[in-house]
Design a protein around this nucleic acid. Structure first.
Length: 282
DNA sequence: AACCACACCTGTTCGC
DNA sequence: TGCGAACAGGTGTGGT
């Protein structure tokens, strides 16, 4: 699933293959891909045509095209979104949702999305920071990331630690995979109350999240299934480095105890029942 | 105000 | 063999 490292891989790919190019046409193949653009698919196509893509930016799991006149195209990959660079007028894949063509006659840019949780919207004046994501916290790889502020936010929450870690208004970019990996690294159970965390433990958790995402980025991202790929359709290989996520019944790399999977927030939490002891009362 | 459950999707895997 | 259920899960919304 695309979390921060995977989105950053895509951002870099788009920087190499889309930045500096002028859009000559936009085709929307599935309206749901632009559902956040309230003016509708036809307007989305019309308003983008003729603009040059200056820069690709990212905050957490969101990325956006900064356009030449200060506007932006804000994109989220959702569960299964992919940007792919391909031959002009190439085959229409069944999951193709949006296709951009450019006035240089070079490769088209395709947005594919099997599960249609992802999408794009045009944001006037959004080049610096699109309004719809102003509420999203800075991510740990942002040069302006404020570690002390984030520690304070974590400890101020009255909830379970994994819920706080997944809350994009506390810290952005962390999803289910890297949340489980971070918690495993610092030996914290997902249900530990945030209010009981010391500054040192909360800071250690943030360090772990930062490190695991940096490591994943260096490996080109995680491809747990074939849904996540870079702009050339290639998978990263960080899944070989996972210690908890997806490893139910496999031995913990620290103590050998079989990794457990618990239902959590309509998804799963993978953890070592010995290294990551549950809080009292569970 | 803060927190939480749920809807939104579809392709694949699992159990009966 | 075939079919329905379960599963994957990020985000916005509406309810408590």
């Amino acid at each position: 699933m695309p979390e921060l490292p995977e989105v950053e891989v895509v951002r870099r790919g788009l920087t190499a293959h889309a930045a500096g190019r002028r859009i000559s046409g936009v085709q929307v193949f599935h309206d749901r891909a632009v559902r956040r653009h309230i003016e509708g698919p036809a307007d989305f196509q019309a308003v983008l045509t003729g603009h040059r893509i200056d820069e690709l930016r990212r905050r957490g799991k969101y990325l956006w095209f900064a356009l030449d006149d200060g506007d932006a195209v804000l994109a989220h990959l959702g569960m299964s979104g992919q940007f792919r660079v391909g031959t002009p007028g190439g085959a229409v894949h069944p999951h193709l949702r949006v296709r951009f063509t450019f006035d240089d006659g070079g490769p088209d840019l395709d947005f594919l999305d099997q599960r249609t949780f992802g999408g794009m919207q045009f944001v006037p004046g959004g080049a610096e920071l699109p309004d719809p994501i102003a509420h999203i916290a800075l991510d740990p790889l942002d040069p302006d990331f404020d570690r002390d502020l984030t520690i304070a936010r974590l400890r101020a929450k009255r909830t379970e630690v994994k819920r706080a870690l997944l809350d994009q208004t506390v810290v952005s970019g962390v999803g289910n995979i890297y949340a489980d990996e971070s918690l495993w690294r610092v030996k914290l159970h997902y249900a530990r109350p945030t209010g009981g965390l010391t500054k040192a433990v909360a800071g250690g958790l943030l360090n772990a999240a930062t490190e695991v995402m940096q490591d994943a980025l260096a490996a080109g991202g995680t491809s747990f299934d074939s849904l996540y790929v870079n702009v050339n359709g290639e998978s990263g290989y960080f899944d070989r480095s996972l210690h908890a996520y997806g490893r139910e019944n496999e031995p913990c790399d620290r103590c050998g105890t079989p990794i457990r999977r618990d239902p959590f927030m309509n998804r799963s939490s993978f953890f070592c029942p010995v290294c990551q002891r549950p809080p009292r009362g569970r």
